[in-house]
Amino acid sequence: MKAVSGTRSVTAGLQSVTAALKILRLFSVERTSLGITEVARHLNVAKSTAHRLMTSLMEEGFVYQDPKSRRYHLGLAVLGLGGIMTADSDLWMAAAPYLTELTMRTGEASHIAVQDGLYVVYLHKVESHHPVKILTHLGRRNPLYATGSGKLLLAYAEADLVDAVVEQGLTAYTVKTLTDPVRLREQLQHIREQGYAVSRDELRDHVTSIAAPVFNHRRQVVAAVNIVAPSHRVPAHVVGERARAVVKTADRISKDLGFRPERRATARTLAD
């Protein structure tokens, strides 16, 4: 009986951990606070259970409660974990100085991004010094098929991931978003051949991004480096120049991660 009771206790504990992690996942750039009713609805649990979970997270510093609104916000413990991850990340440490140089050279905001399921997430950013900037958020998940970094990562991914993205549905965010699976696959092949990706007005109007792959010592693509700018600052005749700068930056980061290329495609100017 004790063994059965112990097993049930462990199972209940794991379920609570899973629920707590799901709560943290509910926070986003668009949803910076949560109420008990929202948490209960999203987790499909009673309000009393939601309150107990939020209390546990609050005691550990992962959330705090606004005394006026009674809503919960992410706490400093989350920031602390993020700082540890950043400090301990070979990828981030390798990328940071080169992103600064890339922004200085191009004048545009630069990022390093990784795949997260069917999405792409920015890990680090160096802001542009132009007065007109493109607002991007660290940690925000964007669709792989509609961004420069996302398409770059998708181009070098296994076919199963491309299939999963297509099966989920290709939502049109602008009139230029690729929603035809055949055209998307053709473009991904083109990206692999030229060694970089360009997304122009596909996720947001008047926004262009150019991305290149970062390889590790096993010759696997582990991240994408990109620049993001208002489209009017990246006319067709400068795309090739900007792409070469992005590819060079990605190559330098790859080298620091132990990558030794056999052959690499050379960035060239796009016809568009």
Rank of each mutant, 00 (worst) to 15 (best):
L152M: 15
V221C: 12
V222S: 13
T49D: 01
T266N: 12
E127H: 02
K47T: 09
H129G: 03
Y64I: 01
S110Y: 01
H137Y: 15
Y72L: 02
V78A: 10
V221A: 10
S231Y: 05
K133H: 07
H237Y: 14
E158G: 12
K2I: 02
V175L: 14
T269G: 12
L144E: 08
K248N: 14
L144R: 13
T174E: 10
A50C: 02
K2F: 04
L257N: 08
F215W: 14
L135M: 10
R183Y: 11
K255A: 15
E158F: 08
P230F: 08
T174Q: 09
Y173G: 11
D116C: 15
P213F: 04
A211R: 04
D88K: 13
T7C: 04
I227Y: 01
M58A: 12
R244A: 15
A20L: 02
A267Y: 06
V214G: 07
G139R: 11
R183G: 08
T269F: 07
K133P: 03
L79H: 06
Q187E: 15
A94E: 01
V29I: 12
E193Q: 15
D160I: 09
A250Y: 03
A243K: 12
S149R: 06
T11K: 02
A212D: 07
R219S: 15
R218C: 08
Y196D: 11
K248C: 08
H111K: 07
T100Q: 11
G169P: 09
Q187F: 07
A211D: 06
Q65A: 08
H217Y: 03
Y173K: 06
A212W: 04
E38C: 03
Q115I: 15
L135K: 13
G195T: 07
H137F: 15
Q187G: 06
Q15K: 07
G6F: 05
A46Y: 01
L79I: 05
L152C: 14
P181Q: 10
G117K: 13
A212K: 08
H232C: 09
P143D: 11
H73E: 12
S69A: 09
G6S: 02
Y119D: 15
R242I: 14
R219W: 10
S231Q: 05
G117T: 14
R244Y: 06
Y145N: 09
K151H: 09
L188K: 06
K151Y: 08
L270S: 12
N226H: 09
H129Q: 03
N216F: 05
V246I: 06
H206P: 00
L270W: 13
H206M: 08
R105H: 08
D163G: 08
L43W: 01
V238K: 09
S5N: 05
Q189G: 11
R70G: 00
L153R: 15
I112P: 03
E241Y: 02
V182Y: 05
V63M: 00
A40S: 11
H237N: 11
H206D: 14
V228T: 15
V225N: 11
M93N: 13
V165D: 07
R25K: 13
Y173N: 04
Y98P: 02
V234Y: 01
G169Y: 05
Y119A: 14
R70F: 11
V121T: 13
L99D: 09
Y98I: 10
L99H: 02
A96H: 12
T55W: 00
H111F: 13
A87I: 00
P97T: 07
A164N: 13
T147I: 07
A211T: 06
R192H: 07
V239R: 14
A229L: 05
Q194G: 04
H111E: 04
V175G: 10
D90A: 07
L138V: 15
